[in-house]
Each structure stands twice: as C-alpha cells, then as structure tokens.
Computed example of a mutant assay.
Amino acid sequence: MADVTTELMFEVLKAVQVRLAQVDGKIDELKQEMQASRTSQNGIRHEITSVFQEISGIHATLVRHEGRLDRIENRLELNDAPTL
C-alpha cells in the first residue's frame, strides 16, 4: 500500500478546495434565482390583489345599479309576476 505523504494529502485537499469553490458558486447562483423568483412572486401577488380589488369595485357598481333598477321598476309598477 502506498505511503500517505504530506504531498499526497496536499493534492487531495487542493482538489477538495476546487470542488468546494464550485459548490459555493452554484449555491450563490441558486440564491440569486430564488431571490428573483420571490421578487416575481411578489409582483404576481400584487397583480392578483389589484384584480380582486377591481372586481370588487365592479361588483359594488353592479349592486348599486341593481338597486336603482329595482326602485325604477317599483316606481313604474313594472313586475315580472304574471297577471291573473
């Protein structure tokens, strides 16, 4: 069996350091991608909230118009009920 020398250990450690540097680089890339995804997700969440607010406003307008139409129909004595 080959004797383990300090030079051999040094070469192995250098290879480990190179691999570790590559892993660190990949982790940094993943962190950046995750941050970009979070930013995008927050933008989408904001857009969805805006859409819900707009729909809520439209719904309130429709409810107001329905109430007005009901009052107009009652005032003009218009009914959907069949006459006997």
Rank of each mutant, 00 (worst) to 15 (best):
A60R: 10
D80W: 05
K31V: 05
E33D: 14
F52I: 10
V63R: 07
F10H: 15
I27L: 12
S50E: 05
M9L: 15
D28I: 01
A2L: 07
Q41L: 12
L13Q: 15
M1L: 13
H65R: 09
A15W: 06
E7Q: 12
Q53D: 09
F52W: 04
D70Y: 04
V12H: 15
T39D: 14
V12F: 15
E73Q: 03
D24S: 05
Q17E: 09
E54K: 04
H59K: 08
V23F: 01
D3A: 11
V16E: 15
T5D: 08
M1T: 04
T5Q: 12
T39S: 15
L76V: 07
L8E: 08
M1D: 14
H46M: 07
A15D: 15
R64F: 12
A2S: 12
G25S: 10
I72Y: 02
L20I: 05
K14A: 13
A60S: 13
R19D: 07
S40F: 00
I58V: 10
I55H: 05
Q17I: 02
K26A: 11
A21I: 08
E73W: 02
E47P: 00
N42K: 10
A15V: 05
Q32D: 13
E66K: 04
V4K: 06
S50H: 05
K31D: 03
F52P: 00
I27N: 01
D70T: 06
A21P: 00
G25M: 05
V16A: 15
V63K: 11
I44Q: 05
F52E: 14
H59N: 09
F52D: 13
H65F: 10
S40T: 02
P82S: 06
Q35I: 07
R19P: 00
G43R: 09
V63F: 03
K14N: 13
V16R: 11
Q22L: 06
I44V: 15
L13Y: 11
R45V: 12
N79H: 04
Q22H: 09
D70G: 02
S37G: 06
N42C: 02
D70P: 00
K14C: 07
L20P: 00
A21E: 08
Q32C: 14
T5M: 10
L62V: 09
R45K: 14
N42G: 03
H59E: 12
T5L: 14
N74M: 05
I72C: 03
K31I: 05
T49L: 06
N79R: 06
I58Y: 01
M9H: 14
V16T: 13
P82M: 06
G43T: 09
E33P: 01
E11V: 01
H46V: 06
F10E: 11
E7M: 02
L13N: 11
P82A: 11
V23S: 01
F10P: 00
N42I: 07
K14M: 10
D70R: 08
L84M: 09
V4R: 07
E47G: 06
E73C: 02
F52S: 11
D24P: 00
E33S: 13
Q17D: 11
G57E: 09
L13K: 15
V63Q: 15
D28N: 14
L76S: 03
L13F: 14
N42V: 07
L13W: 10
L76H: 04
R71E: 13
I72A: 03
M1Y: 09
G43H: 07
A60I: 02
D3Q: 14
A36F: 01
R71P: 00
A36L: 11
Q53G: 11
Q35M: 08
